[in-house]
Simulated scan of single mutants.
Amino acid sequence: MTAETPELKVTKRGGGTPATPEQVAAAPKVALHEHLDGGIRPATVAEIADEIGHALPADSVEGLATWFRDSSSSGSLPRYLETFVHTVAVMQRPEDLARVARESVLDLARDGVVYAELRWAPEQHLEAGLDLAGAVEAVQVGIEQGRTEAQAEGRSIAVGQLLTAMRHADRGQEIAELVVEYRDRGVAGFDIAGAEDGFPPILHLEAFEYLRRENAHFTIHAGEAFGLPSIWQAVQRCGADRLGHGVRIVDDIDFDAPGGPRLGRLASYVRDRRIPLEMCPSSNLQTDAVPGMSTVADHPIGPLADLGFRVTVNCDNRLMSDTSMSREMQLLADSFGYGTDDLRWLTINAMKSAFLPFDQRLALIDDVIKPAYAAL
Rank of each mutant, 00 (worst) to 15 (best):
E7I: 08
E7K: 10
P18A: 07
A19M: 10
A25V: 09
A31V: 04
G39I: 00
T44E: 04
I48M: 10
D50H: 12
H54T: 08
F68H: 00
S73M: 03
L81K: 04
E82D: 15
T83M: 10
F84T: 01
R93C: 00
R99N: 00
L106W: 07
L106P: 04
L106S: 05
V113E: 02
L118Y: 07
L118T: 03
W120E: 02
E123I: 11
L126Q: 04
G129W: 04
L132I: 15
H168A: 09
G172C: 10
Q173L: 15
A176T: 12
E181T: 14
I192A: 03
G194T: 10
E196L: 14
A207Y: 01
L211Y: 03
R213G: 13
N215W: 11
I220Q: 05
A222L: 02
P229K: 04
I231N: 08
A240I: 06
D241N: 13
R242G: 03
G246R: 04
D252Y: 08
D254Q: 06
P258A: 11
P258K: 06
A267M: 13
D272A: 12
P276A: 15
M279Q: 11
N284W: 01
D288R: 14
A289N: 03
T295Q: 10
T295Y: 08
V296S: 12
D298R: 04
L307K: 02
G308E: 04
N314H: 03
D316S: 05
S326E: 14
Q330S: 13
L331R: 15
L331K: 15
D334K: 09
L343K: 08
R344S: 12
R344Q: 15
T347I: 11
T347S: 13
N349V: 09
A354Y: 05
F358E: 15
L362Y: 12
A363G: 07
I365H: 11
A372V: 06
L376C: 14
